[in-house]
Design a binder for these strands. Structure first.
Length: 161
DNA sequence: CGCATTTGACCAGCGC
DNA sequence: GCGCTGGTCAAATGCG
């Protein structure tokens, strides 16, 4: 898409930075298990015909939207904000209004489909916006006994305010 | 050896 | 109906 060096330099300027503060959560607790059984979620990608006679799939009874999204703005130099969970990067795309790429992370827990995306503000390179999608239904496996980490997070939150 | 990360390509949705 | 963007997956590679 960006490969084409055609029009893509004048429009695209809807820069809405109406980010919510760490205290503003507009959403209800919708367990992100909507796709837990996604084990059957196969991808008819490269291999076109996965199951020609298989028409039972696609039980899209659930709405793919309605996913609570929590955005947090943090002042940090690194985008790798460790919140105590294990994340696996599954993609990276560039944003139109941002010269910095956006990183997509996913929780590596079984049954935990929590997603997280980190993006930097082109306006303020020192600001990192972390958007969490879904909720964790498992304990943190990180050693919380490390006071240094706690202090780090405390500083982050303190800086945020 | 296992896991996490990287890049490219593909699909779906929406706009016009 | 076509084009475009965003988003996700898949395979390969590197590192511990």
């Amino acid at each position: 898409m960006v490969s084409n060096s055609q029009s893509q330099d004048d429009h695209h300027d809807d820069y809405d930075d109406h980010h919510e503060k760490p205290h503003n959560y507009s959403g209800r607790y919708d367990m992100g298990q909507m796709m837990s059984t996604a084990a059957a979620m196969e991808n008819p990608r490269s291999n076109g015909p996965p199951d020609p006679a298989n028409d039972l799939g696609k039980k899209k009874g659930e709405k793919k939207s309605r996913k609570p999204r929590y955005a947090f703005q943090t002042r940090s130099q690194v985008d790798i904000l460790d919140d105590g969970y294990r994340w696996r990067k599954y993609g990276q795309k560039a944003v139109k209004n941002n010269k910095f790429p956006r990183s997509y992370y996913r929780c590596t827990h079984q049954g935990c489909n929590v997603k997280k995306q980190i993006q930097r503000l082109s306006k303020d390179e020192g600001i990192v916006v972390t958007t969490y999608e879904g909720m964790h239904s498992h304990p943190i496996e990180k050693s919380t006994d490390n006071f240094e980490h706690i202090l780090t997070q405390m500083q982050i939150y303190t800086s945020s305010f």
